[in-house]
């Protein structure tokens, strides 16, 4: 059972929610697909039990000894990546057009390292995560790898939580692919609503159980109501509403999940939301939640 947590825009509190839900689930496997800002692991004093280099693409390189500087490659490159005798690795998309036209056979494509990947073992299970090379793109291949990498270490875990990438692009699509359900964390703002609409269009493509949660809903109750109305009309279940709560920032800066703060109103709301989520998961996806032995 894979639940992916998404937010169209960044900063809505997605990672806070993932950390809390993972505590409540009692040791879900966590996959941090938010590869541009992989913050989930900061919560844990974990050990990296596995580390690897990830080669996410191809890049052209020039053998300067062979290059005669004719410039045919510069002209053919659609990505403006070549200024002889150099190739800008950030612009090169590895298409190989330059390789085809070079009369001197001076250009070849090589595998490009785009990230380091880690399996981090924590008190409450593993996190599969990556650290991107600066300027590299989190590709669908990387996200797929992170998901697969987690299975290798805990193949039979009943729940996997995926901290999805922001936006609606390539990596998001790969974080949704094959998931059973999605929880979208939004906030009661104009941008929150507009991004929510965009991401719902995407989850519709994927035919998966989608739920919505409004974080800091009381910052603007009017806008929250607008979002709720929109969600109801789209026939999508509301999983919960989390109030603005200063404890969240306190918890974050102590790097402790909000669930460690029993009296926090945000925590209470997330606990209620978790009940609602597990109910939907069991009703519609056949998920049987095993409560952690206390």
């Amino acid at each position: 059972m894979e639940l992916v947590i998404l937010s169209g825009k960044g900063g809505t509190g997605k990672t806070t929610v993932v950390a809390a839900l993972s505590e409540l689930s009692g040791g879900a496997v966590r996959i941090d697909c938010d590869v541009d800002a992989p913050n989930l692991y900061l919560y844990y004093q974990g050990d990296d039990i596995d580390q690897d280099s990830f080669y996410g693409g191809l890049k052209a390189i020039i053998d300067e000894g062979r290059c005669i500087g004719c410039g045919v490659c510069e002209q053919i490159c659609r990505f403006d990546a070549i200024r002889l005798p150099m190739i800008d690795g950030f612009s090169c998309e590895g298409c190989g057009a330059c390789v085809l036209v070079c009369p001197q056979h001076a250009i070849r494509l090589v595998d490009e390292k785009t990230a380091d990947t880690f399996i981090t073992k924590t008190d409450t299970g593993i996190i599969s995560r990556a650290r991107m090379e600066i300027g590299s793109d989190g590709s669908g291949k990387l996200v797929t790898f992170l998901r697969k990498n987690s299975k290798q270490f805990e193949p039979d875990n009943s729940l996997t939580l995926i901290d999805g990438s922001p936006g609606i692009g390539c990596t998001v699509i790969s974080s949704i692919t094959g998931a059973d359900a999605a929880l979208i964390v939004t906030e009661p703002t104009q941008s929150g609503l507009s991004d929510l609409k965009r991401i719902l269009e995407l989850t519709k493509h994927f035919d998966l159980l989608t739920m919505v949660c409004i974080n800091k809903y009381d910052i603007n109750e009017e806008m929250s109501k607008k979002i709720e109305d929109f969600v109801r009309e789209a026939d999508i279940p509301m999983a919960g509403k989390i109030p603005f709560d200063k404890t969240v920032m306190v918890a974050l800066n102590q790097l402790r999940p909000i669930t460690k703060f029993n009296e926090s109103p945000a925590n209470k709301a997330i606990v209620r939301m978790w009940d609602c989520i597990t109910k939907h998961l069991s009703d519609e996806c056949g998920y049987m939640h095993k409560y952690p032995s206390l």
Binding site: D36, N39, F90, M132, S136, D137, G138, M249, N253
Partner: peptide, 25 residues
């Protein structure tokens, strides 16, 4: 947002940068 190739392509046109952050870990 982020440090992906979308940002890299944008930065090519910049000659100064403002980095916005918030006081959290």
């Amino acid at each position: 947002p982020g440090t992906s190739c979308n940002v890299v392509n944008t930065l090519k046109y910049a000659n100064a940068a403002l980095l916005v952050t918030e006081p959290s870990q």
